[in-house]
Design a protein around this nucleic acid. Structure first.
Lengths: 261, 261
DNA sequence: AAGTGGTCTAGACCACGGT
DNA sequence: CCGTGGTCTAGACCACTTG
């Protein structure tokens, strides 16, 4: 019991990070590092109140938001439990593909095809919401899972928001990992389409003929400005996207679903 | 000003529906019925406290959850504003396609291909988490937007959860509309893939050769049991899925993004 | 300085599940 | 019955934006 709580003793009230956010991060980290198994019972709200010395509303907010994301499940009258891990690339969360792959116990490697400054095409300038012809950074790489290509990443970056982007070594870390460390986006937009790959894409992803691609484009904002616009292309037969979560919108008034251990 | 608040006077403390949920629904309804334009300023939290006679934490919860969904935007020191409407089928929300299409100002029509009781195949029984060979309901329909097919719906329903499903007339209402009125799911799972249509699917969706499909499967739970398992197949070139939202996870500590009117 | 939203507290009452 | 989570209150302090 004590060991479980020890992980929570890091909560600090003086940091600029909200307490509920610290609690969320602690729990998510504990789950992703395997300190809790799926289905395992978490400390109750009351126990966390005592252990952390914060009010129950704060605990409750942290746990509620984790529930909405599907990271944990809560059953009234019983307790809070760790959720099932997802086995797909996340549809709704911004995740580092290297982490995703390694969490599945596979090997990740990426091959940088291009990293340069260029002049914004009409499409790129519209997506980045900058003037056509202004300078933008362009990046392209292929990501491998166990030496099999699973994602082609084509990215534009607004240099005004991320001037150092072009000097990074993206063989050592993914663009997503770098960008997430540099800033926390306040808004995201996702689009998903199915399309046939052009010959170049097909070659990069080592796809057989007549196979479609799953095409995810994402834009992320900071302070009202687009920071980056990325297109992630997956071989349709090799990779899916998914999400599982409690419904925030159509939430239960009463009884929650029984949790199956 | 008074007209704006009038819409809020319906909040009741005796209903079994939480107050924050009533406020959310009132605001979403106001937006979807066009009482507020995109970008328009909503009443401040303090004003809503006075108008509704509930505590600020309750108002705040309603507005925070709407922010996470991207329905509204909030800027510290400025106010809360109505968000932009989405132009794609939602990736993360369970929405009635008939509503989605009519909100875009298009005409919806659906053609029921099949509605019958059948014996669960291995795949269907796994997805519904029932015994192989048990009875399940099967439904298939094509949805049209302005007389162009945009979605093929293939659905299995657990008869124990929804015994009346098979008696409904789904020419009058969509399955989604019916199911949403019958129950509010407590959990959902989404999967997205890209694949080539089989000849039958291609025919139903009137697709040209060599065009891929976007394939969304969704399972919804109630009290720990799968209620329905549905596969929605879209013509890759005619329909996309998308979402735009504030990041709950990578939320800002401080200053929010400037809101562009 | 005034108004806004972001967060937090220390209580409270309730519905639910397991005993 | 008791412990659980779900909701709510009436305050509070703070950071931020605008005038």
């Amino acid at each position: 019991m004590k060991a479980v709580f020890k992980r929570f003793n890091q909560v600090s009230k003086s940091l600029p990070v909200p307490i509920y956010q610290q609690i969320k991060e602690t729990i998510e980290q504990g789950i992703s590092e395997g300190h809790w198994e799926a289905g395992e019972k978490l400390p109750s709200e009351h126990e966390l109140v005592d252990a952390l010395g914060v009010s129950r509303m704060t605990i409750n907010r942290a746990l509620s938001e984790l529930t909405q994301k599907g990271a944990i499940k809560r059953v009234q009258g019983v307790g809070s439990f760790v959720g099932e891990p997802t086995r797909h690339a996340s549809l709704i969360e911004l995740q580092d593909i290297a982490l995703e792959i390694s969490r599945r116990g596979r090997q990740h490697r990426s091959e940088v095809l291009s990293l340069r400054q260029t002049v914004a095409s009409i499409e790129a300038s519209m997506q980045l919401e900058v003037a056509t012809g202004s300078k933008v950074f362009f990046f392209r790489a292929v990501h491998f899972q166990d030496e099999l290509p699973v994602q082609l990443e084509t990215r534009y970056v607004n240099p005004e928001m991320m001037p150092e982007f072009i000097q990074q070594d993206f063989k050592q870390q993914t663009t997503t990992a770098y960008l997430l460390r540099q800033f926390k986006p306040d808004e995201m937009e996702h689009r998903v389409k199915a399309l046939m790959p052009d010959p170049q894409t097909r070659k990069h992803l080592l796809m057989s003929e007549n196979q479609p691609c799953l095409n995810l484009t994402r834009r992320t904002w900071k302070r009202g400005q687009v920071v980056t616009y990325v297109t992630l292309t997956y071989p349709g037969d090799r990779y899916g996207l998914g999400a599982r979560y409690a419904t925030g919108e159509y939430q239960l008034r009463q009884s929650e679903s029984a949790f199956k251990k």
